[in-house]
Design a binder for these strands. Structure first.
Lengths: 103, 103
DNA sequence: ATGATAGTACGTATATAATCGAACTATAGG
DNA sequence: CCTATAGTTCGATTATATACGTACTATCAT
């Protein structure tokens, strides 16, 4: 069924490191995370890089399920943020390491 | 073409963070890496946790291809080590973060 | 109400990965 | 040379992911 009122965001305590690593290991998703790390908040469309909406929806769902991204509904847009503090608490240094890599 | 004389180990510069994250996102492989982090050097069989040899061979191959593990042949055994220093240089803080997680 | 916009849900096709038995290869020891 | 051991390679199976078109839903503006 189509649009929804709210999203479910898992408690980081229930997210395993394997789960988080898997979510981060896809280039599209890693790119989303990199952009969110800079942009603070962005709509799905703003980060799609020309990809179809259904593909992006899939990747955001994976990122949400892994506890990495929070999505709030703002009118017609769904605004995404990195769950930085919570992820840092659960996996200290992980995002710093992943986002700090060059090349 | 069974056993081999030597293994190919990629230059870490050619390994992407996505590649490394994917290799680490499998529970069997993460367990291997965790054990190598403690044991310094171990044969494949010592880390198999009762799994078939062909399955383990697959996982070691993935770990090698991602630049995470080095394998040297010592007689009939193939001894594995974590490529700690090189990985730390290429992906600073990554292994500390991944291996430091509890639960 | 109509239309436009943002995104989800579903279904399906395709690709990638995990699992593991069986046959094989290399080395060591008797 | 024969046998045991450690691990690889091959091939087949199954599971998991990705990609994306189409239909749908929610919200907003007119």
């Amino acid at each position: 069924m189509g649009g929804m009122r709210t999203y479910q965001h898992p408690d980081l305590a229930t997210v395993t490191i394997e789960h988080a690593l898997h979510a981060l290991s896809d280039p599209v998703r890693l790119d989303i995370v990199r952009q969110l790390d800079r942009e603070i908040e962005a709509s799905c469309a703003a980060l799609d890089g020309g990809r179809p909406k259904s593909s992006m929806s899939h990747h955001f769902r994976v990122l949400r399920a892994a506890g990495l991204v929070h999505t709030r509904i703002a009118g017609v847009q769904h605004m995404n943020t990195l769950r930085r503090e919570e992820v840092d608490k659960r996996f200290p240094g992980l995002l710093d390491a992943v986002l700090g890599v060059k090349g």
